[in-house]
Design a protein around this nucleic acid. Structure first.
Length: 286
DNA sequence: GTCTATGTTTGCGG
DNA sequence: TCCGCAAACATAGA
């Protein structure tokens, strides 16, 4: 569910809500698989008494830095949410982890599908060693994207979804960025010209920035959908041009948006704006 | 009731 | 290298 803008919104809300720095007095785990490679009692023992220094993001991971160099790394996967609540709040059956805070509040992890994971690491650099560049950082540019696409025979959609290539994009923002750049999700990476790559770069930055500006994309109203700490929903669904808009007109050309499957993922395109590029090379790239 | 799809990631086999 | 498929789970919607 959450992609870069949603994860960043959660982090922004947490950083605001957890000032001044607060101490974790204990932890409870109700679904052990949520806490990877650590038993519930180990998890509690390692976090007890630690002060939360600050919270930051890498790709779709939330990193909670503690005062002893340990970091809680959280991936929300499809349906994970973090909630900051008063202790008397009834614990929902989908709340699988609770961090007890010294000021009385509780940071709870709610995850209907139980795909979300907590990790503990003292070495974030190693933990994130294989993750691709952050699209909104200086580590990413039109020239870098052009170089990344070069020689790759994969289709654009699975390439952009691959966190080891580029960090933070998921199904929504990939579809939106490809529409924005007028590129077909099934086009081969190596067929993208440098000029098109520059357009794609700008499109990625634009759709992510729109998501951030609107505090994320919330698609429905059920608990399985994205909302930030405190239950706030994002407003970016109003800005979507193709995602789950099949049958509706393209805002650029009026053609009806179509839904297809590319690399086993539901994919939304304007069939007129996003034409499939002809195969330039016979076999491979470069 | 039944069947399908789901915003993520990983691992397997061809 | 790349792709298709399955799995980890639960629920909403048709």
């Amino acid at each position: 569910m959450p992609e870069l803008p949603e994860v960043q919104t959660v982090i922004n809300d947490l950083n605001e809500a957890l000032l001044p720095p607060v101490i974790i007095t204990g932890a409870a785990v109700f679904w052990p698989k949520t806490v990877a490679e650590c038993t519930p009692s180990d998890f509690d023992a390692k976090l007890r008494g630690r002060k939360i220094q600050h919270i930051w993001r890498r790709a779709k991971y939330i990193v909670i830095a503690l005062d002893n160099g340990l970091n809680i790394v959280i991936h929300l996967r499809m349906t994970g949410h973090l909630l900051l609540v008063k202790p008397e709040t009834h614990r929902d059956k989908h709340e699988h982890v609770i961090l007890y805070l010294a000021d009385g509040r509780e940071l709870r992890f709610h995850d209907t599908r139980k795909f979300g994971r907590f990790y503990l690491t003292s070495d974030p650099d190693t933990f994130f060693a294989n993750i691709g560049p952050e699209p909104l950082s200086k580590a990413f540019s039109p020239a870098i994207l052009t170089a990344m696409l070069k020689g790759k025979s994969r289709k654009l959609k699975p390439l952009l979804l691959d966190q080891n290539y580029l960090a933070g994009l998921g199904n929504i923002y990939v579809d939106e960025a490809l529409w924005e750049a007028k590129l077909h999700p099934a086009a081969k990476a190596c067929d993208v010209t440098p000029k098109e790559a520059a357009n794609l770069y700008r499109a990625i930055v634009k759709v992510l920035q729109s998501g951030l500006d609107n505090m994320g994309t919330t698609l429905g109203t059920s608990a399985a959908n994205y909302y930030s700490v405190g239950g706030r929903t994002g407003r970016n669904s109003d800005k979507l041009q193709v995602f789950r808009r099949q049958g509706q007109p393209c805002s650029r050309c009026g053609a009806l948006i179509e839904k297809l499957t590319v690399s086993q993922r539901g994919t939304h395109i304007c069939p007129v704006c996003q034409t499939v590029k002809p195969v330039v090379h016979d076999k491979r790239c470069g």
